[in-house]
Design a protein around this nucleic acid. Structure first.
Lengths: 160, 160
DNA sequence: TATTGTTATACTCTATAACTATA
DNA sequence: TATAGTTATAGAGTATAACAATA
């Protein structure tokens, strides 16, 4: 692989592979313990952290998908009784998404196992010094990505 | 979030979020430059690294999916002319997957942009010292995960 | 019996574009 | 005009189970 040095490439592959394994384990756990996809869990957690209520747009923010994808997931969560949707009195174009009691309960049900997986696979095998380094490094990477101009804001179109 | 200290949780979130952003950027690039999914690209790269030929089982190894999922992806790649499948003379149960000239060409077409994305988002924003630390840490995490007993080898069944 | 791979099928998820309604 | 959200629809991908053939 030209253009990157072996240790740079090694870093990339180790990162991608280990995160894939971690995500896979997390997905299994969430599905088994609470019948949730990782995305559904993220959405519930965002609501939880936001004290229970967000607009659709705010909820989607950062969980990169299309509007329609969020509508679909919100539909699933609503069907499962974990959220409700209601009009926003402030702005009648908006929809307020609210986490229900059952939604809270589902999080409570799933969280211990979730933490256990993350601890077992990521935290415990590393000395605390490395956990801190890793957090520090990846925070900088994340912040850099977030401030980067999207670059392919107008991605090349396949011929129509 | 009980059970994990703030810096441990922060590490987990920074890791997941930054890798998601990286993967998303990579997927865009692979699709735009070579009309490949990241999984298809991984499969081609595995063949490339293995000097062009692997059995289905060897090809799937590590790219965690079901047999049928691999059959599906191999079908897609074959339809696109990037691989061929032929019987394995050594073991007639096996199928040998071979990368074609077109497959090599596709990799060559896609790789520069791929490297550019990885460099821009992950490598360049970090001092080389951190690239090395990150590689070192994530290699240990990966190795640990790979040696771990699967734990949920027999995952809880939903009631039948 | 165990392993390799395929098929059929059903399901989840995603993306695009057209649409409604409000700011 | 721009923004918030939904719907229709089509396509990609995944998983399970049943299957055939070989070791």
């Amino acid at each position: 692989m030209p253009g990157l040095q072996p240790h740079q490439l090694g870093t990339y592959f180790a990162l991608i592979e280990s995160v894939s394994l971690l995500q896979h384990a997390v997905e299994q756990q969430l599905r088994a313990d609470g019948d949730l996809s990782d995305i559904q869990f993220s959405l519930l957690m965002r609501l939880f952290d936001a004290n229970g209520q967000l607009t659709m747009t705010a909820l989607a923010d950062g969980v990169v998908y299309s509007r329609s994808g969020l509508t679909y997931q919100a539909g699933q969560l609503e069907k499962a009784g974990l959220i409700t949707r209601s009009p926003d009195p402030t702005d009648e174009r908006s929809t307020l998404v609210t986490i229900t009691e059952a939604g809270h309960a589902r999080i409570a049900k799933v969280l211990p196992g979730h933490i256990e997986v993350v601890r077992r696979l990521l935290i415990d095998p590393l000395p605390d010094r490395d956990v801190k380094s890793l957090g520090d490094i990846m925070s900088r990477v994340r912040d850099h990505m977030r401030t980067e101009p999207p670059r392919s804001a107008a991605p090349r179109k396949r011929r129509p």
